[in-house]
Design a protein around this nucleic acid. Structure first.
Lengths: 201, 201, 201, 201
DNA sequence: GATGAATGAGGCTTCATTCAT
DNA sequence: GATGAATGAAGCCTCATTCAT
């Protein structure tokens, strides 16, 4: 009787995640969340001052979780290429294991319901990618392009790859796609022979 | 006497586009749309049975317009690479010229408010890309990877590039990004020497 | 091309009758009436200044028609009893032949949508019944009760009988019910032996 | 501390009863009901999911109340005739004491706004009348007619009588009408000498 | 006479949030 | 901490009616 029961706050967050991805933010009444979570209406507002606070916390938690998952083990990889591959594989593995959270991020990445500060905090978990790319450029293994651009394109094409993988059934086929997709990615980044990058200005 | 009057339906669609991208679908009351469009409440519902019908038609129109813009002139390009570049440049040019419509597509691409049929119809305008990629594979200039995958990754990284370009001020800097981004893209697709793709685990 | 086409006004009245009985007055939009009648929205309001005007005219027409039907041939009957039976049979026959109009009268008899003047005009078609009862009382064949009361009870039990008949399938069964019902009625009215009616005041 | 507070649900039902009989179902906005009942808009919808649910519950309650009132004390009456008279007097007394509820039943007896199940439930309170009539037939004091028919005609002519009584001022006049009306009724039902009923064409 | 686009008041209902228990 | 009855602003949509063509 002292708080070791499944924890109301977590129950609310878990329920909200499923409902938000299924029905959207505005399409999910707080009353539905509390009912499905098995708590009273008032309880939800005890833990979260506002419906927006709820989505904010959800967003922060998921972004943070995804960020952590994605960098897992890169310190053990030697080359830049291997680190990038690691990131890619981590991201895909996390997406496959957490489809709901992935859908949540897709849906609310550009959302107006999530506060600006939460968006910014979310970004912070992925800053290491920039560093990684800068390092690659310095070492000459990644094209000397705008690191911001490369980072964005890395992320966007990775999310395209993930979507494709998730729409595919069967581990073998998925693995093939992953291999191909990561190669696409790396070929986009890699400093080719004789290509120093089209700088002009 | 036939149609040069302000045309209420168009006024509604134009107003809705701006409001939806600014405030979101659910954050935009129909009453606001009609007021801003300068028509009566009932008029909106005369032309669109439902608020959802309105967003559906908007979605269809914009997807169709974007699809048309993106294939403009590819028949005049000779090589596959040039065609792909053309598509990329067209897409970026359209996005730069129609930032609101672009935001709309981003926001509602995965939206639950847009009907499934509208989503499907929207897809159809981009099927030509698949054919283009298949042709490239057949000719040996594009990696022999899953064409679906390549198509998705092409689209997703292009949208990443576009986002980056739009966040950048100054034509010269933008042009540089475009050059770099398209090269990233093409390097991802291109069949390199000695790489035939198609690995199996 | 000069008005001998099915007549828009009649088309509207006929359509309204069916829709009003099926869906109620307020449940029937004028737009639905005009659509089903095959005329334009504006046309309905050319013939009837108001939706209420429409129901009023319908009410008047039907009440009048029913009144006419109900007295048909009573002048050929000899006795008061035969006249009453004639009225009863006429009423039931009309109801069976015009179920929609009957439902209409049932539904709108106490309705607030029908103007008071229309209600009064409707009553007038049934005044002859009072005279008939008064005559019966004077001749000593009908109980010397309040003629108003007898008239009301005659009408209400007749409508009960009609409802029962209409809920019954098969002409034979219906005829049996009619016979029984009319006898109930007549026994209620008839001045029995030794009963002059319980007058006291 | 358990229920003597004004009880919002009852306040809503009471208010609705008056308004519905005065202005009709569709003529009574839910906003008016809540305002007159002294509760917030939302409160009405907390207790009744729908406006129709409100009328349904009202209908059920009133029918049930009327049913209970009408059978009050019949078990103390000896003869069938006395029981029928008791029912009649009970019904009239209830109607006189509850004019609003009576008007409600009249208006909504055939209404489309009341659900079928509520109608059916309403009927159930009056089934004992059928049994009463069957018993009378078996004992030979009531004509051997279709019991359904007799029941319907009993009810309908009783309601006619009640209407007449209510339109009359003064207890004495009312009592006289009641006496006459019940006699009309009983004469309709009673098995006369030499009349066994049951004609066949 | 006939049409149907246009109007806008008003209806039903939802839902985030509060607060007394 | 937890509850759930109560609130009332606000949203979507309907529909009788008008009027320019």
């Amino acid at each position: 009787m002292t708080g070791q029961q499944p924890d109301r706050k977590t129950a609310i967050l878990d329920t909200a995640l499923v409902l938000f991805t299924t029905r959207g933010f505005q399409g999910t009444p707080t009353s539905l969340i509390s009912r499905e979570a098995g708590v009273a209406t008032g309880t939800l507002f005890f833990y979260f001052k506002t419906k927006e606070d709820l989505i904010d916390e959800l967003y922060r938690r998921i972004k943070s979780e995804a960020g952590t998952a994605i960098k897992e083990g890169i310190e053990n990889e030697r080359s830049i290429k291997e680190k990038i591959y690691r990131v890619g594989k981590n991201g895909i593995a996390w997406g496959l294991a957490n489809p709901e959270k992935l859908r949540f991020m897709e849906q609310f990445a550009h959302s107006l319901f999530v506060s600006t500060t939460a968006h910014e905090e979310g970004m912070s978990h992925f800053l290491f990618l920039q560093d990684l790319i800068r390092e690659g450029i310095k070492k000459g293994v990644i094209r000397n392009y705008d690191p911001n651009l490369l980072c964005t394109m890395l992320a966007s094409s990775l999310s395209g790859l993930l979507a494709q993988v998730m729409a595919t059934q069967g581990k073998e086929k998925q693995d093939l796609l992953i291999e191909q997709g990561l190669e696409f990615l790396w070929n986009g980044l890699e400093a080719g022979p004789g290509k120093t990058g089209a700088k002009r200005t």
